[in-house]
Simulated scan of single mutants.
Amino acid sequence: MRIALIEPDRRHAEMVVRLLFAGGHACQHFISGKSFLAHAVGETFDLLLTDIRPGDLAAEDVIPLARQILPGLPVIVLMTVPRESEIVASLRAGADDCLSKPVRGPEMLARVDALLRRAGVLRPSNRPRNVFGDYAFDTSGGVVAFRGERVELTPKEFLFALLLFTNLSRPVSRAQIRENVWTHSRDVKSRTLDTHACRLRAKLQLRPENGYSLTPLYGYGYQLDRVGAAHADPQPGSVNERITETL
């Protein structure tokens, strides 16, 4: 996952970056809150680690500003001498967790992973067949059917669509889409993601009259929602049977 670190202490920042890299995460270091906020407008992150006094802004000011740019961004606040008043202020400002400095590697990684599990996207299951209402995904063949009719998708469109359906009503960041769909090439332009999302909306007929809405989240990613009553679960023996025959 992509993690942003706001840490004025460069020596401590270097240690945190190394620990996160060893834990399988990419980390970008910022020396101040304002520099992070300016960069976040055109970038995506899965979690924010910030010092309680990140140079120019207090953590309790950075957190709400960060979430205006990146909705739902998980946050851990770092404190040299944790005081109850500071912990309370950070949690009330929206922090999800607090850690003492200098960090202890195993504890930090465990807390980061736990928070990402709670807040991050769900990865598609390993089941050979996944059904979401009128949509059926055959993961073994990379085939999807809508109301019993096969829909032609490219391999990346299939992975993108399955990721969105697996995370129904949850925001999925561009970084998470790149990681799950473009696994061997993370340097994918935003326009490429937008083009794939547009094709999915058209090919899978993701429209309110069919019970779904695919919404771009400005500067963050995409969210697929179930809307209205049009998409009631099919009764056994109807649509599901036709889907089975198609796949």
Rank of each mutant, 00 (worst) to 15 (best):
L19G: 13
L20S: 00
F21S: 15
S32R: 08
S32N: 11
G33C: 07
F36M: 01
L37I: 03
A40S: 06
D46E: 14
D46R: 11
L48V: 08
L49W: 00
G55F: 00
G55S: 03
A59C: 14
E60V: 12
D61M: 10
R67W: 01
R67V: 00
I69S: 04
L70H: 15
P71Q: 07
V75C: 09
I87F: 04
G94C: 01
D96Q: 12
C98S: 07
K101Y: 03
L115A: 09
L115T: 08
A119L: 07
P124F: 12
S125P: 08
N130Y: 07
V131I: 15
F132G: 04
A136H: 06
T139H: 09
V144M: 03
V144S: 03
E152C: 08
K156E: 14
E157I: 05
V172P: 00
R174W: 05
I177Y: 03
V181M: 01
T183D: 08
D187A: 14
V188Q: 02
T192Q: 11
T195A: 13
A197V: 03
C198F: 10
R199N: 15
K203T: 09
T215L: 02
G219A: 07
Y220T: 12
A232F: 00
Q235C: 00
S238P: 07
E241F: 13
I243H: 14
T244N: 11
